[in-house]
Amino acid sequence: MNKPENVSHPTPDTGTKPATATRDALVSDWGTSSRRLRTVLLYLKRNPNLTVGLVLLAALAAVSLGGQLVLEPKFADPLANRPKLPPSWEHPLGTDSQGRSMLGVLIYGTFLTAKVGVIAGLIGVAIGAVLGFMAGFFRGWVDVVISTITDVLLTIPPLLVLVVVAANLATKLDTNQMALIIALLAWREPTRQIRSQVLIMREAGYLKTARLGGTSMMGIVFKELMPNLIPYLMASFVLAMATAMLASVGLEALGLGPQNEPTLGMSVYWAMFYGALLLGMWWWVLTPVLALVVLFVGLYLVSAGLDELANPRLRRRRQ
C-alpha cells in the first residue's frame, strides 16, 4: 500500500558531508567488484534456463577440449583402430566399421561442428549488427539500401544456395570453408533483429537523460545503446550459431560435407551409409546424435535464458 509521500522542506545543502558511519553501513559496497560478482551469481540462481544451458554447453566443451589433451586426433581417423568394436575399457564408445574411435569422434567431431557454428554465427552476427545498427540509427537512404537488400535475400531458401555451392566443392571442402559458405547467408536475420531493436531504442527517453549528463555521441552509442543490445546480440548469436550448425549437419548428412574430417554430421552420414543400425552398432549412431542433442538443447536453454535477461522487467525478483 502506498503511503502519501510527504517531504515538506527538502534542503539541497551543498557543503556538508553525510555521516560516514551511515554511508558505510548502508551502501558500503557500492561500486566494488565483489558486489558485482555477487549480483551475477544471484542472477544465475534466479534464471535456471540460462544456468542449465550454460552447464550443458560447458560440460560438452570440457569433454571436447579436455579430451583433446589426452587423445590424439588420429584416433578419430579411419583405420586407426580395429573396426566394429563395441564399447569396452579400451574403446569406451566403441569403434565404427572403418576403425574410427567413437570417443575420438565425440571429442574432435563436437569441436569441429561447434567451430562451424561459432565461425558462421560470429561472422553473421558481426555483419548483421553493423548493418542493422546503421540502418536503425541513421535511417534515411542507408536504411533503405540495407533493408531492401536484406529483405530480398531473406526470400532465398538457404539450403538451395548451400547445396549448390557445397556440391561444387564437395571433395575439397574443409570445415573452415564450410563455415564461410554458411556465413554467406547467416547475417540476414541478425540484421533485421538488430535494426528493429535500434529503431525502438533510438527514441528512448534515457538517451535524452544521457545527453543532459554530458554523454557524447560515441558514449550514447556504446554506453547507453550497446549494453541494451547485448542480450539481443547474444540471443542473435546463439540463434545464428544454432542455425549454422543445423545447416552444416544437414549438408553433411546429405554427404556434402568435408569428407576427411570427423564432424558429427559426417559421422551420422557414414553411419547411415554403412547401415550401422542394421549391423547392430548402436554406439555408432548414438554418440553423434547424443552430442548433437546436448548441443542443441544447451543452445536452446541459453537462448531462452537470454530472452529473460534481455527484458529486465521479466527478471525475477530477488528472494
Binding site: A204, Y206, K208, T209, T215, N228
Partner: peptide, 30 residues
C-alpha cells in the same frame, strides 16, 4: 549548466543500469 526533468519518469532511466547510473554519468562527465 542546462538541465531538464521530463514528463515520463518511466522512460528516463536506462533499463540496463541500476538507478545510480543517472547520477554517476553527470558526476563523471562533468
Amino acid at each position: 549548466e542546462v538541465q531538464a526533468v521530463f514528463q515520463d519518469p518511466y522512460a528516463s532511466y536506462n533499463p540496463f543500469y541500476k538507478i545510480d547510473h543517472v547520477l554517476t554519468v553527470p558526476l563523471k562527465n562533468f
